[in-house]
């Protein structure tokens, strides 16, 4: 599809390339600072003035990460949970007693942090107290609800909704057969969506537990992103951008997804602009497009360079897009 897109307007000249020095597995913005998470050991912090700093955080693989505007939380195969700020200073938030892998982390309200190791889920509250929940199987994902102190834990055969501050309260269990992996709340907190081991998404409307099945993917959905206000859920996993409508009270129930930016290669990473209805779409062959949801108009952000776009995100202001590839080539694009 490269040639057909040659005519697209291009903003590739606004890209600043960064050699991250290793496979990029995630990227987060701390204001204007882009923090690239590598598969092993290191964060690469790229300042808006072009300077980069390398911060060694884990003694081994970095398995998971999450962030708010002030710090990047990482979990590693060294059994540790770390928080790294824009100054490059890291603090150890937890070390697993059995040195198990920290598979999942999530950033909650008031600097609360959740992580999982084995089947155990931990929350460190704003007050610094630790809470533990034993999940029925190893969690595939963790997500804090947008309101209230509640953590969704996806696992085999469903999702548990846990209130870490309600001692002895049994977590609410949302059942759906199969292995649930990545998990996300809609920004208004009305819907909960999981990516499954099968190439499909499952959703629940939380008010009544109604199920939503979002199928038709070619591959496991590894990347999801909510558009501004939660009108759309953008997803990877097909040979085009798949957007599920969440505007109405029924969400995508009985509706078809919007399909944009078709290619002969698979979409592997998506990131919605924080304010406008624009989605950055990364493909397995390295193409990055900015796609307008209304009419499908495309702008070329990066040519296909043969290597998958493995991580991508916008800064909160929406004027910078950072992305990284499996071979360590990364970039920050300024609009």
């Amino acid at each position: 599809m490269t040639d057909t897109r040659a005519a697209n307007p291009s903003i590739t000249e606004r890209t600043r390339n960064i050699d991250a020095g290793g496979p990029v597995v995630a990227v987060h913005f701390l204001n204007d600072l882009a923090g690239f998470v590598l598969g092993e050991e290191t964060l690469v912090l790229a300042e808006s003035n072009g300077e980069t700093r390398r911060v060694d955080v884990h003694a081994g693989a970095i398995l998971t990460s999450a962030a708010d505007d002030t710090r990047i939380i990482t979990g590693g195969d060294d059994g540790r949970v770390l928080a790294t700020g824009a100054d490059g200073k890291s603090a150890v938030l937890a070390t697993d007693a059995k040195r198990r892998w920290v598979d999942q982390v999530a950033q909650g309200p008031d600097n609360a942090v959740a992580w999982s190791a084995g089947k155990q889920v931990f929350v460190k509250t704003a007050e610094g107290e630790d809470r533990i929940f034993d999940a029925p199987s190893s969690p595939g994902g963790l997500a804090f609800a947008p309101k209230g102190f509640r953590l969704a834990v996806s696992h085999y055969n469903g999702t548990s909704l846990w209130f870490p501050n309600a001692a002895n309260a049994k977590p609410e269990f949302l059942e759906w057969k199969g292995s649930h992996l990545g998990i996300t709340f809609s920004p208004d907190g009305r819907f909960l969506v999981t990516a499954m081991q099968e190439p499909t998404l499952h959703g629940w409307r939380l008010v009544d537990g109604r199920h939503m099945r979002m199928a038709g993917y070619a591959a496991k959905v590894r990347s999801t992103s909510w558009s501004n206000g939660g009108k759309w859920l953008a997803t990877s996993g097909a040979d085009q951008l798949v957007l599920w409508p969440f505007q109405g009270k029924d969400g995508p129930m009985g509706k078809q997804p919007k399909l944009l930016a078709p290619a002969d290669k698979r979409v592997v990473t998506v990131a919605c602009h924080p304010a406008q209805d624009i989605v950055a779409v990364g493909y397995e062959h390295g193409l990055v497009l900015l796609v307008r949801i209304d009419d499908g108009a495309e702008i070329l952000a990066s040519k296909p360079e043969g290597v998958a776009v493995s991580a991508m995100t916008w800064n909160l202001a929406g004027n910078m897009l950072a992305f990284g590839r499996e071979d360590g080539r990364a970039a920050v694009l300024r609009l």
């Binding site: 496979p23 693989a61 598979d103 595939g140 292995s179 081991q197």
Partner: peptide
């Protein structure tokens, strides 16, 4: 797996571990 194969089972932990190992 919910793929219509009644005998189709996988090791979920292995999927997770291999994904993590491949980072190294």
């Amino acid at each position: 797996m919910n793929n219509g194969c009644i005998c189709c089972t996988v090791r979920g932990d292995l999927i997770r571990i291999i994904d993590g190992l491949m980072r190294r």
